[in-house]
Each structure stands twice: as C-alpha cells, then as structure tokens.
C-alpha cells in the first residue's frame, strides 16, 4: 500500500513557474468575470433609472408592478434587511480579532528585543549574539504589510456601511408585505391606452433580449470558472529540454488556447448588451413622450425607480459583506500562522538567551 509522498515534488523552478502561472490565470479569470459582472450592474442601473420593466407593467397605476414584486420576494427570500444588518454588525468584531492577533505577534517581538538590548547594555561586547532587531526585520516587514491590508479593509468596511446607510430605507420598504408595499407607492391615474402601442411591445422585446444576454452571461461565467489545467508537465519538459522555463510564453500560450474562445464570447456578450441598451434608451424616449407626465405619475415613477435600485443595491451590499466576512476569516488563518512564526523565533531566542546568561555568569 505504498504511496510515494514525494510523487508531487517538482524542481524549485517548476514550483515557482506554477505559482506565477496560476496567478496569471487567476488575473485573467477575474478580468473576464469582472467585466461580465460590471456589465450586469450597468444594465441593472440603466433599467432602474428608466423605471423599466416596471413602467411597462404599471397599467392600473395603483398596484405593485410585477417586476417590483419579484424583486421584493427575492430580497425577502435572501434574508432581507436583517441578514445584512447582522453581517454589518459582525465586521468590527472580525476586524478587531485580526488586529489583536497582529498586535500580539509584534508585541512579543518587541518585548524580546527590549530584553536582548538590556542584556547587551549590561554585558556589552560579551553579549556576542546577533541583535534581535536584525533578526526580526523580515517578520516586522510582513507585519507592516498586514497592517496596510487591514487599513484597506477598514476603508472597504466604510464603503459598505455607507452603501447600506444610503439604501437601507428603500430596502426596508422593499421587504414589506405586498399590501404595505402597495400602500407606500404613490398612485397615479392609469397610463392611458399605452397597452396596445407599438413602442411598449418593442421595449418588452428588447428587455427579453437583455434577460437572455444576462442568462448567457451566467452560463459563460460558470464555464470560465470551470476551466482547469495543469502546467506541471509542460514546465518539466521545458526544463529538461532547454534547461530553463519560459513561463510567460508557455502560460500565455496555454491561456490563449483555453480561454481564447471565452474571451471572444465575453466581448460579444458585452457588445450585444451595449447595442440593446442603446435601443432601449431610444425606445424609452418615445415611450416617455407618449405617457402622460403629471406630478403623481412622476412621483410614482421616482419611488418605483428607487425600489428597483434598492434591490440591486441589496444584491451588491450582501455580496460585499460575504466577501468581507470571507476576507477577515481567511486573514485570521494567515495571521495565526504569522503569530506562530513570531512565537517560535522568540521561544528560540529566549532559550538561547538563558544559555548565554548561564555561561556569562559562570565565567
């Protein structure tokens, strides 16, 4: 039942090439997925600002348009306001836990160095071991890096909190049951005989196309993320044949083969959204001109727009909060490893110190 624990071991150069190649791949995937997500946010923003699709569904002028109802149910189903409030409340504690681990780690380095300096002052050149300050340089640099990361995280927390404060009122309204939601939306006399007009059908068709583009996007994102490949053999072969690894060439070549088609499909997806959104904006102008514009109608439209964008903000805020929670938990693990490194070296230095002290006292 022998399994060779060294089976996966590779030369150093291959190991480094693999980690660079992996981060190259990670960057490409993030860029592709990021551009798709950005396009979805843009699309949602434009539609919300045009009060679409709600304006097309809002025939009676006093009931809750279907798309707003669906958005309300979606938010409630994902836990509504309470779920994000709870995550927001947890952020400061997660931050504090990370700070404490970091501060504690750096403190034990400082304390040991202080003692080392005191003894060096007392025994001067007889205290002939390397000063702790020199030994701890790289650990302190690493600690400094963690501090920067935590400061950036604090800014991110602030962004999320502000986003939450801006939208929580509307999100709360969206979370209300249908009757209360309906009562909260100002009513306006029904949209005249818009139902039959051609521009309403054109707009509806355009919105269906946008939905299809978004659905394709989700499939595309899944496929992009599912791509896996291993460069080990290629790097090993290169090392054997040429004695060196041209990581960049090999990785870029592989990434082109694996992701070339996806990159094109992403660009095509973004282009078609751009075209359709432009058409929607033109049709909407025609639609808006047809609709009667009086105070009640525009007041109602304002609230419907806010409700639609409250849904989009809810999705964004909860994804930010999930990202933040994961960030802090991942960082805690990394900081605990850092803490172990600090306590290990300090333990070793203390043991060494005691021995040196004994020798000096004897001599």
């Amino acid at each position: 039942k022998f399994s060779d624990i060294f089976e996966k071991m590779v030369p150093m150069l291959v190991q480094q090439s693999l980690s660079i190649s992996n981060s190259r791949k990670g960057e490409l995937v993030n860029r592709l997925v990021g551009s798709l997500r950005e396009a979805t946010n843009l699309c949602n923003g434009v539609l919300a600002s045009l009060n679409l699709p709600a304006a097309l569904e809002d025939l009676s002028g006093d009931s809750v348009p279907q798309s707003i109802l669906e958005k309300s149910r979606a938010v409630i189903q994902q836990g509504g306001l309470n779920s994000i409030e709870q995550l927001i409340k947890d952020l400061p504690e997660l931050l504090l836990r990370n700070r404490e681990i970091l501060d504690e780690s750096l403190k034990i380095l400082n304390d040991e160095e202080t003692t080392d300096n005191e003894l060096r002052a007392k025994f001067s050149q007889r205290w002939n071991r390397t000063p702790s300050g020199d030994l701890y340089k790289s650990l302190r640099a690493e600690g400094g890096n963690f501090r920067n990361i935590l400061d950036k995280a604090v800014n991110a927390d602030q962004v999320v909190k502000e986003r939450y404060n801006t939208h929580c009122e509307m999100i709360a309204l969206l979370c209300k049951p249908e009757d209360q939601l309906c009562a909260a939306i100002p009513s306006a006399n029904p949209a005249k005989t818009l139902q039959g007009s051609e521009v309403v059908n054109v707009l509806k068709a355009q919105l269906v196309q946008l939905d299809e583009i978004k659905r394709d996007r989700e499939v595309l994102e899944g496929e992009i993320k599912a791509v896996t490949f291993d460069m080990t053999t290629k790097f090993l072969t290169a090392l054997v044949q040429d004695g060196a690894i041209n990581e960049e060439a090999l990785s870029t070549g592989e990434l082109d083969t694996r992701y070339g088609a996806y990159t094109q499909r992403v660009q095509q997806n973004l282009r078609s959204q751009e075209e359709i959104l432009a058409q929607v904006q033109t049709s909407h102008q025609e639609f808006a001109a047809l609709k009667q514009s009086n105070a009640e109608a525009s007041h109602r439209e304002e609230v419907l727009k806010k409700l639609a964008s409250a849904h989009d903000s809810y999705i964004e805020i909860s994804s930010n909060l999930k990202e933040g929670t994961k960030f802090y938990n991942d960082l805690t693990e990394i900081l605990l490893k850092f803490q172990n490194k600090c306590s290990d070296i300090v333990f070793a230095r203390k043991t060494e110190r005691e021995e040196l002290l004994k020798d000096l006292q004897q001599s």
């Binding site: 150093m12 190991q15 980690s19 981060s23 990670g26 993030n30 990361i149 950036k152 995280a153 991110a156 962004v159 999320v160 930010n320 990202e323 933040g324 960030f327 991942d330 960082l331 990394i334």
Partner: peptide, 16 residues
C-alpha cells in the same frame, strides 16, 4: 472586488 486580495499571502514563502 472591494477587499484586498490575500492570494499571494496564502502562498507559503518556500524560500523562507
């Protein structure tokens, strides 16, 4: 993404 990436921190510095 909003939060800093921890990717390169997760890679244990083999050289250390």
């Amino acid at each position: 993404s909003l939060y800093p990436s921890l990717e390169d921190l997760k890679v244990d510095k083999v050289m250390r």
